[in-house]
Amino acid sequence: MSDRPTALELLEAVEEFLSSELLPTLDDQRLKFRTLVAMNALGIARRELEADEPGLGEDEIRELARTIRAGDVPADAHAVLKEHVAAKLRISNPQYLERYE
């Protein structure tokens, strides 16, 4: 058991530093863009730590891919995959899913 701040709290601290202290001082557009990308990366890591829905495991995905490739597509394959990808998007880019509403 580590001391606080937790991993999550450390990520938040770096995100806050980048957005409120570093970003406003940057004039170089390229550097600004890369800083926003870095903040996005931290956000992904933070949401992954917070998430309690890992989606399908690697073995399950591999097994599903094998059955689909063999031409034996499970009836719920599309729904299962959609939910699996949605779970990944809730971590990588939650706003993206709103584009399908």
Binding site: A41, H78, Y96
Partner: peptide
């Protein structure tokens, strides 16, 4: 870091592919 984050962006195209198929 840009290239790193692109790895997580592939899921957006996966979702779009499932949507197009559907």
């Amino acid at each position: 870091v840009e290239y790193a984050v692109l790895g997580r962006m592939a899921a957006e195209m996966e979702y779009e592919l499932l949507y197009l198929i559907e």
